[in-house]
Structure formats: C-alpha cells, structure tokens
C-alpha cells in the first residue's frame, strides 16, 4: 500500500519550498513556521507530562484527535525552532490512517532535506514521527476496547 499523494500535499509543499532555499534561509523558514504556529492556540491543559515527548533538548508536546479514520496532530514546544519542526511534522502527517502513518520512515524525514539542521535535530524529528505513530496505535487500541 502506498499513501495517496493528495494526503501528503502539505508535506510536498514543505519539500518544495525547502528545496529552493539555501541553508541560512531554511533556518529562517523553520523559525517562521515556528512563529506562525505560535499564533494558533495550543490547549494549555495539554502542555502536561502526559502529552510531553521525552528525550528532547527542549520540551515538545503533541496532542492527537480523530477525524474519520484519520489522525490529527498538533505540536507545541517551548523553543521556536523546535516548534517549527514539530509543526512541520504534525502538518505534514495529519489526516493519515494508522496504517499510513505506519508506512512513514526516516526517508520521509530525510525528504524534507533539512540540511541546515544538525543530526541531533534529525534524530529529534524521527522521534516526533515515532511518537505520532505511537499515539495513533494507542488511540486505535483505546477505540477497540
């Protein structure tokens, strides 16, 4: 099974935009996304231990809800750059089913071609993806019970 292209339009937009930029501009692009994400309210009550992702140099929270059989995610971080990165991840991969999310791999993270970012942050983004995959499975289990 492959993921229908129309489900990844936001992801493709990011890929295209980043591709045109040099490293310094990519850095600023991510900051911009982070700042824009700042304007969308993230539920304060969700910035708690339960929604926090561990193992990041800054704090990262991800909330999840369902729309049909698609999973929606929203991310938050106390650092703007990380907020930009987590917004790119949640924006790119919201609306996918559990099975579709399960198909995403490190290649999708690499596809964003965030060359400006250090490996540390690439690993951080992979952790975000894994976290989203985990949330989708947990939610399926909860629905089945």
């Amino acid at each position: 099974m492959t993921i229908a292209p129309e489900k990844l339009t936001q992801y493709d937009e990011y890929v295209e935009a980043l591709d045109l930029l040099d490293e310094d501009s990519r850095f600023e692009y991510i900051i911009d996304i982070g700042k824009r994400a700042d304007k969308v309210a993230f539920p304060a009550e969700c910035m708690d231990e339960a929604h926090m992702m561990h193992g990041c140099m800054s704090k990262v929270w991800i909330v999840h809800d369902m729309e049909g059989d698609g999973h929606n995610f929203r991310g938050q971080s106390d650092a703007i750059i990380v907020k930009g990165l987590v917004s790119m991840m949640t924006g790119s991969f919201s609306g996918l089913t559990t099975a579709e999310l399960g198909e995403l791999t490190l290649d999708h993270v690499r596809g964003l071609n965030l060359g400006a970012l250090t490996m540390q942050r690439q690993v951080g983004m992979m952790a975000m993806l894994k976290h989203m995959q985990k949330l989708s499975r947990i939610s399926d289990l909860a629905a089945a019970n």
Binding site: M57, S58, A79, I80, I81, V82, A116
Partner: peptide, 20 residues
C-alpha cells in the same frame, strides 16, 4: 528566548556551545 533557539543561532554562526 529559549536556550535551544539561542544555541541553534550560534551554531549557524559557527559557534559551538552547549545547551541544556
């Protein structure tokens, strides 16, 4: 400004610091 954002900007300038 979050220390991570500061450190990432320093990194862009070639300045290696520790954060955390």
């Amino acid at each position: 400004i979050h220390p991570f954002d500061t450190a990432a900007t320093l990194d862009r300038a070639g300045v290696a610091v520790r954060v955390g």
